[in-house]
Amino acid sequence: MIFFNYLILFITHFVQADCALKTDKLFEQGKAYFTNGQYLLAANQLATFTLLTCNEAQSLEARIFWARSLYELNEAVEAERVILPMAKNQMWESKVRVIRAWYQPELKQSLALVEQDRFSEFQRQVSQLETIKKPWLAGTLSAVVPGAGQAYNGNFQSAVLSFVLNSIFLSATIELHREKMGAAALASGMLFSVVYLGNIMGSMDSSHSLNENHQRADQERIRDQVFPELRLPQ
């Protein structure tokens, strides 16, 4: 009898060790894909891992990254299906709440009430980050001289293109009006208006994009500090 018990123990131990050996690589690779931003591969790898693994704790951790990959791919419904069952577990409930709030803007406000301190701390720190361009200044410059806002952003090629296109349409409108070609002048004027307003909006949008690109690394650092639940795997 004792011999059989030892035999069963030995076999169980052997099977578990073999299983861990095979699946650990899947988990590591899945996390590496997630960190590299290859979310489709990460989701696939981590889903396979949760099916095959014998380690319950690792399986739950993998589900978190699986769901996060799906959120990153804008597959919110699928992500919810993966992550929601974990909310019943007391150990994971808080982490699940933060992840859902982070990835779903419509939940952010309601869940922010529960995690109000951390969310306001995050927003406070982000608002203090340095911006490199002022969108209102770029817009004003582009309104005064088309292309000037783009030049202020450091986008010299688009500045030249904006200036040239606006000049062509404006001069064509004026010339057609002088020649008493009302309909053509109106059409040219409309085109000018679109290009002129587009030039203003474009310069402001570019300023926002440049600021976002500049702040991205710092925002990720703050996010990791305030919400350790959202830290990338090491």
């Binding site: 986008n155 307003l197 949008d205 976002e212």
Partner: peptide
């Protein structure tokens, strides 16, 4: 309206796509 104007602005900025992109 806003979408169209943003698209025109983006069209004008294509030459500097590398600088602006994420």
């Amino acid at each position: 309206a806003r979408g169209s104007l943003l698209a025109v602005g983006r069209f004008l900025a294509e030459a500097d796509a590398a600088l602006i992109s994420e």
